[in-house]
Amino acid sequence: MSGPAPKSDFPPIRACLFDMDGLLLDSEDKYTICTNTVLQKYGRPPLPWSIKAQLQGRPGPAASKILHEWAQLPVSQEVFYAETKDLQKIHFPDSKPLPGVEKLLGDLATAKVKGEKAGKVHIALATSSHEANFKLKTSHLEELFTVFSSDRRVLGDDQRIAEGRGKPSPDIYLLALQTINSSLEPGEEEIRPEECLVFEDSVPGVEAGRRAGMRVIWCPHPELRKEYTGKEEEVLAGRTGSGGEVDMHLVGEIKDGWGEHLDSLMDFPYAKYGILVQG
């Protein structure tokens, strides 16, 4: 028996919500370098992508717990975290935009919504990075991040996100949408979740977007993509189980049309999402 036909009558996208690490910046590779340096120090093998896939997108404490349980290091989680953090202070300031990111953000800064709700496309950031790490990764890229106004940047240590409700829970993306809706121009109609497009590289992040009732672009690292060969549709539906059994009624269905996989953010298909780019 075949499932329901994919939805095709989506409204135009009015808001684009972005993850950061591994999606906008190559900072995920910096995490790997720092982690592997400490693992090697204690005679442990490099971090495999099967484990890294579980870490991506999650808040620091949750990721650290998963990593430490796998690594079985002869030092405490706190020592490992401290040593890794010292290395991150060296490597994070070298973070660079990934291919297509500068053009995509530049285009969206002046883009319009197609159709009866024609207006500007709104943009917000929703990253699990805490403020200190965010500054390390972005202080040298201030011009790139000007598209995200300060009130539309939701970071991992935002007090409005309840403890334990980081990605893959939907809270961070719902909050990002809230920051947009609370600052719309007079007369602008409130943006609904189905009018939002989430950009993610991680599997927990895709699940967070789907649980928020939003459409999702999954643009993973090539090595992460290999880890999920044959399971792409489960990822796009948010049904990989990375969030456990909580809120499973909020995830999507296989091939329901709400998610799309892209190899990179270059040549983004704006028209498909009802986005009109200037020029």
Rank of each mutant, 00 (worst) to 15 (best):
L197N: 06
T229V: 06
N133A: 13
S202E: 05
D158I: 06
I191G: 05
A15T: 06
S139M: 07
G230C: 10
T35Y: 09
D21W: 01
M20W: 00
D19R: 06
R153K: 12
T127A: 10
L265W: 04
I66Y: 04
R14M: 07
N133Y: 08
L104F: 06
G187T: 12
V216L: 07
K41G: 06
Y31C: 00
D86W: 06
E227N: 10
K231A: 11
G156H: 10
S128V: 06
L262S: 03
A82D: 04
V277W: 09
D158C: 01
A15W: 02
T127Q: 02
G106Y: 14
A71T: 02
G243C: 08
R44K: 15
E207N: 01
P6W: 09
R44F: 12
V216P: 02
G156I: 09
K255R: 15
V277C: 09
Q54V: 00
S129Q: 10
R211G: 04
R165E: 14
I275M: 09
I66K: 07
Y228N: 10
K167Y: 04
R211V: 05
I161E: 01
G100W: 02
E233C: 09
T229Y: 00
D21R: 02
G257Y: 13
G187E: 14
G279M: 11
I217M: 07
P193C: 03
W49Y: 14
E116R: 13
N36V: 08
W218L: 11
D157C: 06
P168L: 06
E131D: 12
P222E: 08
L136S: 13
R210N: 04
D94M: 15
S2N: 12
T179G: 04
E131P: 03
